[in-house]
Computed example of a mutant assay.
Amino acid sequence: MNDLPFLTEDHERFRDTLRRFIQTEVVPHAESWEDAGKVPREVLRQLGELGYLGIRYPATYGGAELDTVYSAILAEELGRSTFGGFAVTVLVHTDMASPHLGNFGNAEQLARWMPGIIAGKTICAVAVTEPDAGSDVAGIKARAVRDGDHYVLTGTKMFITNGVHGDLYFVGVKTDTSVKGSRGISIFAVEKGTPGFSVGRSLKKTGWLCSDTAELVFDQCRVPAANLIGGEHKGFYSIMRNFQNERIVLGAQAMGEAQQALDLTVDYVRNRKAFGGVLWDKQAIRQRLAMLSAKVAAGRQLAYHSARLDAQGHECVKEVSMVKAYCGELVNEVMYTCQQFHGGMSYVRETAIERMARDARIQAIGGGATEVMLEEVAKRL
């Protein structure tokens, strides 16, 4: 029985095709990607050929012109792959970086970059976070100064997904330092190889190992004024609008991860022999998994409800903030319990549940920490 009755046959075909691709082209190979610290470009190009990198973009550029619900399906299935680094590599490209161009780019910018983005030939990153400015976007210190037909960018960005191997970076900087807080921020598209732009270092992380994460340095980096996205001093609006999309897909990804972890754990405890039977015979284990299953079902409903609200154009900051807070915390609760019931093997690097537990920790931090999300909810109660 479909527990999301609003999903159509088209939604399910979209999901089934993606799930088959992940099972055949990702799962058998992704452990080696973890060791390499990156997802192969060929895999991203294959996703582009299948239409998964341009879900919401115009057909003019090769997009599918679908809505937020399809993005949630994409994120959920990527989460079910058990490789969080692969999932976020794709989702940063599709739903966190390129929407700056998709939402606010002009005709020339769209024609220049969007076809490559949708095809998986131009991989995107978004560079807003700084060493002292994470969830607090108003703390951005990187700046850009107009110099003729260029802007000169100076500053450092931190924790940038796709930062090492990306091609096109959407960078948030201050263009008006005379105003405080979030005003005076602009977004620039910066191409790899631009003089003055470099990867400061590749960051070693606890999880998401096949996702490359970098510190970026802009040292008198000259960027053409034509690369300004959405107008000068308008970047904060682009960032805030895109946060909604980012948090929906992160919530859906988290629920895909949580459901897959539960499926793996139920299968494990049904077969793991202990104390003259199998672990599934223990009422405490069955009931704890049952409660977590109920919570994941609720989180999934909330994520898709928010996706539908967004697709229909409704204001849904409260609901999206709930998704990010609830799903980010819940996936960690699920992983803790699933590790516990897998026993000692859950602490060995060769098991999926060990990797998934490491990958899940960031879900309560990245894209808006739980505490920040709860404040957004509280302001709207």
Rank of each mutant, 00 (worst) to 15 (best):
F6W: 09
D16C: 14
V26L: 04
E34N: 15
D35F: 08
G37Y: 02
V43C: 15
A59I: 03
G62T: 15
G63D: 02
V69R: 05
Y70M: 01
L74Q: 01
E76D: 06
E77K: 05
G79Y: 05
F83N: 03
T89M: 01
P99Q: 06
A107D: 13
A111R: 12
M114A: 07
G116C: 11
G139N: 05
D147P: 00
L153F: 03
K157M: 07
D167L: 07
V171F: 01
G172W: 03
K180H: 09
G184S: 03
I185W: 02
T194K: 03
G200F: 04
S202L: 10
S202R: 12
T206F: 12
G230F: 02
E246S: 11
V249Y: 04
M255L: 13
Y268C: 00
A274Q: 15
G276E: 04
G276W: 03
V278G: 00
Q287C: 06
Q287M: 10
R288H: 10
L289T: 05
K295M: 09
V296S: 10
L302M: 15
Y304T: 03
L309E: 09
H314E: 15
M322S: 06
A325G: 07
Y326F: 14
E329C: 10
V331I: 07
Q339A: 10
F341N: 07
G344C: 07
V348F: 09
V348S: 11
E354D: 12
R355F: 08
R355A: 08
I365M: 09
G367N: 11
L374D: 12
